[in-house]
Amino acid sequence: MREAVIEARKLTKIYKRDEFEVRALDNCDIEIHRGEFVALMGPSGSGKSTLMHLIAAMDRATSGRIAVLGEDLAELDDAELARWRNRHIGFIFQQFNLIPVLTALENVELPLKLTSMNGKERQRQAETALKLVGLDDRLTHFPRQLSGGQEQRVAIARAIATDPDILIADEPTGNLDAQSAKDVMTMLQKLNRDFGKTIIMVTHDRHAAEYATMIRHLEKGELKPEIEYPQA
């Protein structure tokens, strides 16, 4: 039986908006195993992004328990959580979220600055990551000099630069044309299949979801029963 890297029990997140309380996630139980590629789907406001934020330690649950890679996230303080994210999680966003004043290489190097690597090692590692996504000829380009698809590939390179256990992808194809979206999904699939990365992807895109090994639907903050797909 495969190791569970994410275990959430009765996970609840309530946001306060003025005098109102919004129950974004309601008693959610989920277990994700190493090497799985899970697509979280559901309508807007269903709680998929909230679940992703809690798994990635970007936010704290109101109640319930979540353990990622065996670490109870509630027990870590903010600084420990930050370092934990750096070591274990790679992020890919819909809007790419590259730093505009840094080159592709510098963007990829950024999370490596928090490791014990020296400058040369960081550069070598960042170059390797960019080579893996096919952008070794764009090292000194700034984000504005790249196409959307290339920007997302730089973001993927940044996400894998620290060799994290889990990749979190938030609508990774949302801002891309069909061909770039296909390229990005193929790349994520390769990272899952060939490098054993556990991937959790939030998406509205059915075509993108087909690349996942499992699709989980959320509705009104509740997780629906799982559907397992053979990979495309």
Partner: peptide, 15 residues
């Protein structure tokens, strides 16, 4: 502000 969010996501602490 968004850039600050990205930095923190990547592992930079508040300090």
């Amino acid at each position: 502000v968004r850039e600050v969010g990205i930095m923190k996501t990547l592992g930079f602490t508040n300090g």
